[in-house]
Amino acid sequence: MKKSDFYYDLPERLIAQHPLAERDSSRLLVLDRRDGSVQHRHFRELLEYVRPGDCMVFNNSRVIPARLMGHAVGHTTPIEVLLLNDRGECLWECLTRPGRKTREGVELTFGDGLLTATVESINPKDGNRMIRFHYEGIFLELLDKLGTMPLPPYIREKLDDPERYQTVYSKTPGSAAAPTAGLHFTEELLQLLRDKGVKLAFVTLHVGLGTFRPVKEEEITDHVMHSEFYIMDEDTARLINETRDAGGSVWAVGTTACRTMETIADETGHVRAQSGWTDIFIYPGYRFKSIDHLVTNFHLPESTLMMLISAFASREMVMEAYRQAVEAEYRFFSFGDSMLIL
């Protein structure tokens, strides 16, 4: 299968540059994968599709201010460092720019020396740097002081309120990009789901900027997926398994929650508490084990996320739904409208 099979034309004016005033006022395109039918609704009407006893699984990862500006010790040329994955013991996988200024062994400094770092190695496959940070105090507090929110490259307008790039249920810091399907939920909508008898469960998957990395290979099976760290606790595993055993539906809110569950699930769709790194790549032909419905945003052409949702429905259904979304002038990407695949 070719990456060009997942291309669609998108006018630039449809790329949302800012969130709507009310999170749940976004539009909702509903695609029924049983017959390919499409409905045009609003996100707060999602409640009509969920049944008592169903379980919705959310990604509670919180975006950190992962973009740091500094320079090499003894030099003044600005160097941008984007934190991708926490590898433990103050070691982070990072993107740097300009790369030629961050060779192995280079010492970096940020915020007049409040934070320093050493480039320890360079991945020959993707050029990512392994950088070890040196500091006193709490790293996340230093990031709050020195870092900025790394908005996706297609968002060119300033974000007035950084909390609008966080879900209302975000809890565990570690993502370099938001799990954007969840941005449409409000505290009120979550309570309405609880009142209806829907179980709310939470996994953690720290989203890396690799989610925006384009597929370069024409044969999609040649693409190498980035790795992301996930956590599923005992409570979430129990809720998912109870729902499965009782005949309820399991909903994934976002491709990150989906990828986490599909990494862990056995052939019966049951899951267990565990944590680790996943590089699961889902594309047409994949057989889903753990989810029945998917809430997601509209994704970039030829992206791995387009391939994932084309595996969940079908490529033909998804491409037709996207054609209708463009025609109806839906808002696209991180701050855009939403899609429900039944």
Rank of each mutant, 00 (worst) to 15 (best):
R23C: 10
F202M: 02
T211F: 04
T204D: 11
L340E: 04
L305M: 09
R164E: 10
S25A: 15
P214R: 15
V253R: 08
Y322A: 12
V250Q: 07
G208D: 14
H134R: 12
V326P: 02
R51G: 01
R87W: 09
G254F: 07
L159G: 06
F281S: 04
T263E: 13
T167A: 04
G111Y: 04
K101M: 12
E218P: 13
G197N: 13
L29D: 08
P52T: 10
T263G: 07
A313V: 05
R41Y: 06
Y154D: 11
M317V: 03
D144Q: 13
D266I: 07
F139E: 08
D195H: 14
A176L: 00
D24S: 12
E187P: 09
G105Q: 06
F335W: 02
A265S: 14
E157G: 00
I231T: 15
N241D: 14
F133P: 01
V215G: 15
L91D: 09
D161N: 14
E157W: 01
L95Y: 07
L31A: 04
I280T: 03
E107L: 12
V106S: 11
Y330E: 07
E22R: 15
Y322M: 02
E267N: 13
E45M: 06
R103T: 14
H40T: 03
R103Y: 07
D5W: 06
G53Q: 09
H40V: 01
K289A: 12
R62W: 03
L114Q: 14
Y283R: 04
T109A: 12
R315Q: 13
V318T: 14
C55W: 01
Y169G: 11
R51Y: 04
E48L: 02
N241G: 14
V38P: 03
A237M: 08
D144K: 12
T204M: 06
S170N: 01
L200W: 10
E217K: 14
D126W: 00
G105V: 09
G269R: 13
I341Y: 02
E327L: 10
F288Y: 11
A72V: 09
C94H: 09
S338F: 00
L239A: 13
Q274A: 04
T102L: 00
S310G: 03
N85L: 10
T221Y: 10
I309L: 08
A21K: 15
E234Y: 11
V326A: 11
G182L: 00
R129V: 02
S121W: 02
P301V: 08
E104S: 09
R156Y: 01
A237N: 11
L114A: 11
A328C: 02
M69P: 02
K145V: 00
L46G: 06
A257E: 01
